[in-house]
Simulated assay, not measured.
Amino acid sequence: MTVTENANLAVSDTGTDTGTRASTRTGAALRLRGLRRSFGSAVALDGLDLDVAPGEFLALLGPSGCGKTTALRVLAGFERPDEGQVLLDGEDIVPVPANRRDTAMVFQSYSLFPHLTAADNVAFGLRMRKVRGAERRARAAELLDLVGLAGYGDRFPHQLSGGQQQRVALARALALRPRLLLLDEPLSALDARVRVTLREEIRRLQLELGITTVFVTHDQEEALSMADRVAVMNGGRLEQCATPTELYECPATDFVAEFIGTMNRVPGRAVDGGGRVEALGVTLPVQEPDGRSGDVTVLLRPEALEVTTDGPARVTGVSFHGPTTRLRIALPDGTDVKADVSTHAAAGLTPGTAVSVRPRQRPVLLAAAPTGGAV
């Protein structure tokens, strides 16, 4: 797709004069119902159902090939589903062409016109709608100020940094006050410091404007730090859609438990009708008892492990993370686990140090079967 095509599609045309709209508005309600999309024998979406509340910021997260990008392209109108509906405020927009949907999209590659200034790029969609020149220029200046680029309107894209170009792309998407904002990994091409700053700015703007937003990313930190809820996808299906805290603390499936953050898998034995489990010498409550007994695999976060000096286990690796340090530890049975301890407590715990590892007393999740090893 060319830069021109991307820019044209980035701001959809509904034929509405933006001058008649309020400066802020409540976002649209979005519902996906039974979305299916295949490419030959490859199934990209397999009956996806998802609700997004008005003004909500939803992140689509998952491994490569999980279907998150296909879902976003269906929302934008770049892909037509084989089956299913996309309901925007109750209206099925699947038959509506991409350039006629009241949506806006920010791309990973910025997609700015190189021959236009920042202000003209922002005003591009307004010019296509034949908004008057003075109003168009005022709106562009307002949006550039909103994204922190006041005074940059006369600069061309090659005179801007990557982060500044992405701010211009965001301002262009917001210029038409869309009901739905779509973000296609807009931060992945930026360096780490700029990514952190810009994700905070995007979230601030989204909250201020109240626009319903769907954000595709492969970066867990971005998803968990920005979104109201995160939809974790796998194999074209929705594994779980919940708040970041709920995803981390109460994952609904083994896949979510091991995909979000870091998870250790250690052998254990379910007792008391599956309500409790014995692991690493400690008896722990099971978060969601399923009646199993006997050998199971216990899922433990690194911060759920206590480490003390002297014992049968051995430190095999040390990784500094500022206030915390991650230890890699080999247990006597050959299982490797990761434990997060305060950096102060980790002083002296060098590779080869003998240690003991015990789980903290908190409910734990069980996997389907013991496999050993740390994830």
Rank of each mutant, 00 (worst) to 15 (best):
A231K: 02
T2C: 01
L30G: 03
M226Q: 05
L143D: 01
C66K: 07
R132T: 15
D219P: 11
A134N: 06
Q85G: 07
S41Q: 12
E306L: 11
V106W: 08
A345Q: 09
S111N: 10
V341P: 06
A227L: 04
E258N: 15
G15T: 04
G373E: 14
S109A: 15
N234R: 14
M1S: 14
G163Q: 11
A98I: 03
I211Y: 00
G373R: 14
G235N: 05
P244W: 11
L238I: 03
R31K: 14
A134R: 14
R229Y: 03
V131W: 03
G65V: 06
R199G: 04
Q240V: 09
F107E: 01
E278S: 09
Q220A: 13
F124T: 01
T14Y: 00
V131M: 08
H115D: 04
V337M: 13
Y152E: 10
D184M: 09
A354C: 06
R37T: 01
T26W: 01
V214G: 04
R172H: 02
A347F: 07
P302C: 08
E135I: 02
G294V: 14
P332L: 12
T16L: 14
F259N: 06
R80L: 13
L30T: 02
L207H: 14
D228F: 13
L112G: 08
V131C: 01
G311I: 04
V307A: 03
D17Q: 10
C241N: 06
S109K: 14
T283A: 15
L149C: 03
A98Y: 03
V43L: 04
S111C: 13
G40N: 02
A22M: 09
H115A: 07
V94F: 00
L149M: 02
V266K: 05
R237S: 13
P63S: 14
L61N: 09
L190F: 02
R136P: 00
T262M: 09
Q220R: 10
G151P: 01
V11K: 01
S161V: 11
G133D: 15
D272I: 05
V194M: 07
E5Y: 00
E135T: 12
Q287G: 11
R137F: 00
Q287M: 15
I211Q: 02
P251W: 02
V52L: 00
A374S: 15
E83H: 08
R136Q: 10
L187Y: 08
T69Q: 02
T262P: 00
A192P: 12
S23I: 11
S41N: 06
I211V: 15
L149S: 01
V168T: 12
N8H: 13
V341S: 08
G235P: 10
D219V: 09
Q85S: 13
E278F: 03
V375W: 12
P323D: 11
V337D: 13
T316S: 11
D51E: 14
D120V: 13
L180Q: 08
A10W: 02
P81G: 11
P267I: 05
S12D: 07
P351D: 11
V296C: 12
T253E: 05
V298N: 06
L187P: 12
A138M: 00
G27K: 03
L116V: 06
G62S: 07
P54M: 06
R31L: 09
D92W: 03
A192G: 08
V122E: 03
L75S: 07
G317A: 14
F39I: 04
A227K: 05
A140E: 00
G235M: 06
G322R: 09
P114D: 03
L366W: 12
R177L: 06
L183K: 12
G274M: 14
T297M: 15
P178D: 07
